[in-house]
Design a protein around this nucleic acid. Structure first.
Lengths: 247, 247
DNA sequence: GATCCGCTTTTGTCTATACAAATAGATACA
DNA sequence: TGTATCTATTTGTATAGACAAAAGCGGATC
């Protein structure tokens, strides 16, 4: 069920994480692990290479492999975009523009975005469909001062998110995830009941302190979730490489 | 000077970074790359495995390898223990144990966790309060085989999340965020209406390949959100961990 | 003592082969 | 028409053997 190289990896990882093998400790040589696990050197090598890749150990020819310096604990999660993910997973994704209008920023929205009232914007509403079912409602604001070419773009062929990625460099993004109950209009579009729990992702993207775009993506709670794995193995490389006489 | 697997890795990486191969694009099969580079499949496999490890491509048997989604769609958020998070944001946090019981894993839950039925567990339910208002309902399962000392711990002084963080090393965590409607019991505890949209964070933590704990934290949608900043770096985890908190 | 040379150990890479696991697609069957 | 089974393809894992590269070590030489 669990492969040998994975088991070796985990055995060593566990000992490092549990502090049984402190930073600087020499890990058994490949040929010793070959004896211990009764497998080939390539298998051991794969496990140790993976540990080195993750920065948990450092390896030096003729010297050996050593536990790297202390770990930095971080609990991080990554969030993937549903449309891209859907395509990758072999699902059918399509979208439809519900609204496309050039407006001026009203005071309330301007305050929310931290941009001046009256700025030219393009307001876009899209409905994303995965395998024939409505999966997400996208409500986007594009700052036309930052992306003038959006003024004439129809977004008929390329979804706005993808188009913007290719078009505009960005330097910062802020994400907010919240749960909201669907209002009547949203529920109708997403083909769900009113009041249904929906997962909303809000993303605002800046290019050097000026907003490029602000997007709100609303998913029905029963059709979407964010998921991600995390390995707490960010380890620094030791400043001075360990030497043979390390105690 | 540069090894073959490294060259293959870099060739593909370059094409992905330059956008020549867009997300979703199929990467040549291993046997095709073997032909192209005139090397063995193991060498190609090493390169592609490394790309998959880095999250630049996804691989599926019988199907092939594909360019993964763009980095902006794989944003990173950090998720902390509730009490730590509340304290950081300058809020007053307290909690109350609603249930603390040693049980055996039933078949359904066991399957969900990927652990054997009948294993000894500690089931813990906590209600977290922030600034006097119920903020989160925590439903936790601790595998007693992995954390024997939890059997006698009362969790009266230290919240279970924090206690476990200090107590048990972990090597992998999986997070899932979803939106759910509150059932009657949940709504009553969280002092909200039934059917209210709630944000649920599910986290399963492993040490090696064995589950340490599984926790479900349910927040009322109007009192909580996840938020995080993200700055683009090279593909991978950003230099500075983003923040997360209330607002 | 200093320098160079070669020996040895350990990791790094590569090959050719083999079988296992997953699964899309085709085929047979109820 | 739907379901079960088979087949072919692709990735995943493992092996045994080989040579290369890095580097510590000791010895020979100046």
């Amino acid at each position: 069920m669990v492969s040998i190289h994975q088991r070796i990896f985990e055995d060593i990882e566990t000992r490092i994480m549990a502090g049984i093998w402190q930073p600087g400790h020499r890990i058994p040589f490949e040929h010793e692990l070959v004896q211990e696990y009764q497998c080939s050197r390539m298998t051991v090598n794969k496990a140790l290479s993976a540990l080195a890749e993750r920065g948990m150990i450092t390896r030096r020819r003729k010297v050996g492999s050593f536990v790297a310096s202390r770990q930095i604990d971080r609990t991080v999660m990554d969030i993937q975009d549903i449309s891209t993910e859907a395509e990758l997973a072999g699902h059918d994704h399509s979208y439809r523009i519900l609204r496309r209008k050039i407006e001026r920023l009203d005071a309330a929205t301007a305050a929310r975005l931290g941009e001046p009232t009256g700025a030219d914007i393009l307001r876009l509403h899209c409905l994303h469909t995965v395998d024939g079912k409505p999966n997400a409602l996208e409500r986007r604001i594009i700052m036309l001062a930052m992306v003038p070419s959006a003024r004439t773009e129809s977004f008929a062929l390329v979804p706005p998110g993808k188009w913007l990625l290719d078009m505009v460099p960005w330097s910062k993004a802020r994400h907010v995830i919240r749960a909201v109950s669907a209002d009547a209009a949203t529920a109708r579009l997403l083909e769900t009941e009113r009041g249904k729990a929906c997962l909303t992702l809000i993303r605002q993207t800046w290019q050097s302190s000026r907003t490029v775009t602000h997007v709100e993506i609303i998913h029905p709670g029963d059709r979407f979730q964010f998921a991600g794995d995390f390995h707490p193995t960010e380890r620094g490389i030791p400043d001075q490489p360990p030497r043979s006489g390390f105690s």
